[in-house]
């Protein structure tokens, strides 16, 4: 399951989507909205994406991870729009025969998302809102991290 969605992420469905009887480990990573940033208290985040490109890059990252760690299942879901503190912005689930592969794959995918997927977020605070100073997008299909 590779998706960019507007509504709440169904974390249970993401986990189910990677289930395999051959798996000895399933790792779930959740990115969540925290209540503070560099400038102080945060009320929520707003996400937007270049959706067509973001989906293509997500699929490419997933293919790399599946091949590199011999995964049995991998799902990545990123949410857009307005999120409140505590809500899930991104869910990554990886299943593999052994835990090391599943852990490493999840780490790879979230690091790759932060560098290579065209998504932008804005912090909403009592004082106003501000685009988060991110990184220059890296396009590296031979290895995202």
């Amino acid at each position: 399951m590779i998706a960019i969605v507007q509504d709440s992420i169904d974390v249970a469905a993401v986990l189910r989507s990677v289930s395999s009887n051959s798996a000895g480990a399933t790792v779930l990573f959740l990115g969540t909205v925290r209540d503070h940033g560099d400038e102080g208290a945060v009320l929520g985040l707003y996400y937007e994406a270049y959706q067509e490109m973001a989906e293509e890059v997500l699929r490419s990252i997933a293919q790399q991870a599946i091949g590199r760690w011999n995964l049995l299942g991998l799902s990545v879901v990123h949410r857009l729009g307005n999120l409140a503190v505590g809500e899930v912005s991104v869910a990554i689930a990886a299943s593999a025969e052994h835990r090391v592969e599943a852990f490493e794959a999840c780490r790879y995918v979230i690091d790759a998302i932060k560098k290579s997927v065209p998504v932008w977020k804005k912090e909403i605070s009592a004082a106003g809102s501000m685009w988060v100073e991110g990184v220059l997008l890296e396009d590296n299909p031979d290895g995202y991290v």
């Binding site: 490109m53 991104v90 997927v117 932008w120 977020k121 988060v132």
Partner: peptide, 26 residues
Amino acid sequence: NRKVVGDTAKVTPTDEVALLPLVSGG
């Protein structure tokens, strides 16, 4: 066309062109 390109690349009216400021997904 959904790929990052360098300054010398050519752009035509049929291309899908986008400007991508610093990204901050996740």
